[in-house]
Amino acid sequence: MYEVSMMDRQAGRRLDYSMLENNNSYYEVYSRNGASAHILVHPDAQADILKLLNANMMNYKIVHNDVGLWLQRDFEMNQKLRNLYPYQGKLGTERYYSHDEINQFIEDLAKQNPTRVEVKTVGKSFEGRWLKTIRITNGDGRANKNVILVDGGFHAREWISPAAVVYGINELVNNYEAHAQLLQDYDWVILPVVNPDGYEYSQISPNTRMWRKTRQPSSRHCIGIDPNRNFDFHWNEAGASSDPCDDGYAGPKAFSEPETIVVRDLIHSLADRGKMYLTVHSEGSYLLYPWGYIESLPDTWQDLDEVARAGRDAIKAATGNVYKVGGSAILMYPAAGASDDYAFNAGFPISFTMELPSGRKNPFHPPPTDIDRLVKETWVGIVAMAQKVVKKYPLN
């Protein structure tokens, strides 16, 4: 199996994925925006896919000649790092951590900082894993502060997402003095891993590394749905699939998954105080705001744009990396039933999907050597956006 990066030869024109519809048992488009995409290609279809791309005037390059070999080496490295760096009360950036380790970390933080940190069990995944939020405050005991809600790990294979979220948790708790302003009139509520079943499944073996969905059976032959297509706001419209075997399957109904119900309930429980909802994904260096279901912008798009550009500018100044900012469907592709649209419609005035940057050697799956660089850069952007939100939406 190998990986192909393709791009439309006519600048500014969106890719037409219909050319691949009859070949979907032999490929997976797993990372895309409007004008480019990455495709995993089955060995039996390599010649045919390249012929198809040429016939449709696509520029392309082969990124990996043997994805299976890369996945095997990646798996072995992660197993080695787990043995070298066992969990000992803190989470570093040396490796990717399991869902249980992340839950243990936030529990330990709550024990060590009882006046500023509270961990709450908010639900259970399909396979019975506990979903827990951490609420971080400045410890002054004032109720009814504004709220910033953050989550990660919607898509199982996007390991850098929980890593970045956990890094932010550590900064807010253990580097409190540097971030006191962000906690003066605001509480942060964070769910590090929305989809723990998929996340754990993606770590079992090289063969499961590319898993994206949840793990609840969706048909006789297929498992899981895309949790970021399962929210009841323009559910199962553009950009969502009705095929239970598709990676973008929206589910048999909105909120069919216990994991998305948890996020829904969090959003509604905090909407009266919530000022920013941020969901962290990968990959591509994007700060995306509503709408995702349609190529259009809400009336308050300038508020969204102002906050997103603060994050973009801070990241550019710190690292030189340039994020693209704009409406989700406009910059990338339609994705109906997503959590950011849902949170915005529920009352969060600022709602973003943050697509984290590519790894140096592998665009979609940054190796452990890239974790430290990426999570620190991500935090720079999150802090800048939070500072803008705190100023823009003071506590009444």
Rank of each mutant, 00 (worst) to 15 (best):
E3L: 09
M58T: 03
Q79K: 15
Y167M: 00
G68I: 06
S256E: 12
Q203L: 14
R13F: 13
E118K: 15
H64Y: 14
F75Y: 15
H365E: 10
R264M: 09
R13A: 11
H155E: 09
W188I: 04
D16W: 00
S98F: 04
P363K: 09
E283H: 10
N138Q: 04
G274V: 08
D265R: 14
A335H: 07
Y286T: 03
Y30I: 04
Y85S: 10
Y97Q: 00
D197F: 04
Y277V: 03
G251L: 03
Y2E: 07
A384C: 05
L15C: 02
H42T: 10
I267Q: 12
R215S: 05
M7F: 03
E127Q: 13
L182W: 01
Y333H: 10
A250L: 05
P86K: 01
R209D: 02
V380Q: 01
N59Q: 12
K145C: 08
P196K: 09
R209K: 04
Y333K: 08
N59C: 11
G123H: 09
K316T: 15
Y201P: 07
Y277H: 12
K132T: 13
R142F: 04
L91C: 10
D185N: 07
K111N: 12
N78Q: 15
P114M: 06
L84V: 10
R273M: 11
V322R: 14
W379I: 00
F348S: 05
R309K: 14
A37N: 02
A314P: 06
V375S: 09
T121S: 15
V380S: 03
P192E: 02
F231D: 01
H38Y: 10
V194P: 01
E355F: 08
D299F: 13
Y26R: 01
V389N: 06
D16I: 00
P217V: 07
E177T: 13
P334F: 04
T93N: 07
R95G: 02
H268L: 11
H221D: 14
L131H: 06
R82G: 14
I148P: 05
D246H: 12
P196R: 08
A317L: 13
H281N: 08
L270H: 13
R95S: 05
M19V: 11
E107I: 11
T378N: 15
I106E: 11
K51P: 02
Q203W: 14
W379T: 01
K324L: 14
P217T: 10
G224F: 04
T208L: 06
K132L: 12
M6R: 00
F105A: 13
R142P: 03
P86D: 09
S285P: 02
R312E: 15
G274Q: 08
V262L: 09
A180R: 12
